[in-house]
Design a binder for these strands. Structure first.
Lengths: 247, 247
DNA sequence: AAGCTAGTTGAATCCCTCG
DNA sequence: TCGAGGGATTCAACTAGCT
């Protein structure tokens, strides 16, 4: 399938398959960047459940020293392990110095920085996507931002031909989303610019294909991996359609 | 000293002393919120960088540099433990449901969320302070934001008489700062509004006193603790001066 | 328009170890 | 005792958009 797609579109492909399996089939030094929006919580508890269990757990703590780690993190722990696995495999097929960008929400951000570093990437910072339009909550701060945890595969020379990039991006959520977590295209066009010009970008969780589309629009080549058959097909159609419109 | 100050200013005081010691002298249920900006100790990766005193670390600011401040030179392990300790002690003197807000930078954010939860607070989210200007980094995302890790002492009823608050605050750094890490006053005026009207706010790391000043300006009472003699005095002068100007 | 940036980089230097 | 090598540390140059 990927050969066929590659033949038609030399600069991009969407591979249908599981990220962990597909990643191991690439050769080392294949990619210049990893830019992706992984599933945020494979266990998927609600915030209320998390708060309740946390509350119960720590109300019994009394005067003694705090426990070493949050006990309601069983789901989070397995998420972290899983993330470390694919981050490791992704790093292994990247060139030295390649940047990595991972979208994440506030709750998984600490787990994401752990996983990134466990996988051998150097964590270099956190950029912010200000969504602007989240639902207000009385008596609370709005959760109106998502985060881009980013780093590099070893040293990242300041001499790379890449300009300075902003640290906060403000874009509203797109209308008519194909995928539930689809990011604004302009946001992705901004973020992929962390890659060296003309580089080959990997997105192991392609979803609706925004990263791949943005990469091609900005002059990069890109490989997306998507496990859900329907999204792999939908994203291919979307990218072809939007590239045809733009051309 | 605090008695004297309290007598003159019924709604605020700055106590000169170490946070861990002073916190243990308050009675339970004294405070309605903790809002603070602790030392980040986010200096470099090497031991020596962490051991640097703040005046050396920020020597590039020249003669106009503010006096050094205490507590910015811990490694990440001891910083996390230390933060969990004062967060725990602070929670013990707060009312049930009291909110906590802790400023932190990107590097220490995972450690801060750990410490907050170890201390028994429920972590409820992360708000963003967009500083707007920061050092640009060629080929990198700017580190242009600091974070406000926030939570509550147990359940936090939605019925509290507090409106919805933004999740991203954009304010430039103030001019003519007393303290190296002084926050914009308007930012602090926005953040203290997480407290119930008329409540008593605690800031264990008062620094230049922005939290206390903002709290009083917004109709709260406030207690600040500051370990550095010079800043305890400077902040008292500043708050008196600015309150007199405003009145 | 000038001045700022809770900094970062890489090269030079220093120091200690080992053959 | 010397020199090579590696790790630790210091230092000055630097960056570009925002206020």
């Amino acid at each position: 399938m990927s050969d066929n797609i590659t033949a038609i579109h030399p600069s991009w492909e969407i591979i249908h398959g599981d990220a962990l399996k597909v990643l191991r089939e690439f050769a080392p030094n294949t990619f210049d960047a990893v830019i992706t929006d992984p599933p945020y919580a494979s266990g998927g508890r609600t915030q209320a459940e998390k708060n309740k269990s946390t509350d119960k757990k720590y109300s019994s703590m009394g005067e003694s020293a705090p426990p070493p780690f949050d006990g309601d993190s069983k789901d989070q722990r397995s998420w972290t392990r899983w993330a470390a696995e694919w981050l490791y495999d992704a790093r292994k097929v990247c060139k030295p110095g390649a940047p990595v960008c991972m979208f994440i929400d506030w709750r998984q951000l600490p787990a994401a920085t752990d996983a990134l570093q466990w996988a051998g990437w150097i964590w270099r910072g956190t950029a912010v996507w200000d969504k602007g339009n989240s639902r207000p909550q009385k008596g609370r701060f709005r959760q109106q931002a998502e985060y881009i945890v980013w780093g590099s595969n070893g040293d990242m020379p300041i001499s790379r031909p890449v300009p300075c990039l902003p640290g906060v991006f403000k874009y509203g959520n797109p209308q008519n989303r194909i995928h539930l977590t689809e990011k604004p295209l302009q946001l992705m066009r901004d973020v992929v610019k962390i890659t060296e010009p003309g580089g080959h970008i990997l997105d192991p969780f392609a979803g609706s294909g925004s990263t791949v589309l943005a990469a091609v629009l900005e002059g990069y080549s890109a490989t997306g991996i998507e496990v859900t058959d329907a999204y792999a097909a939908l994203s291919r159609e979307r990218i072809e359609r939007e590239l045809a419109q733009g051309a």
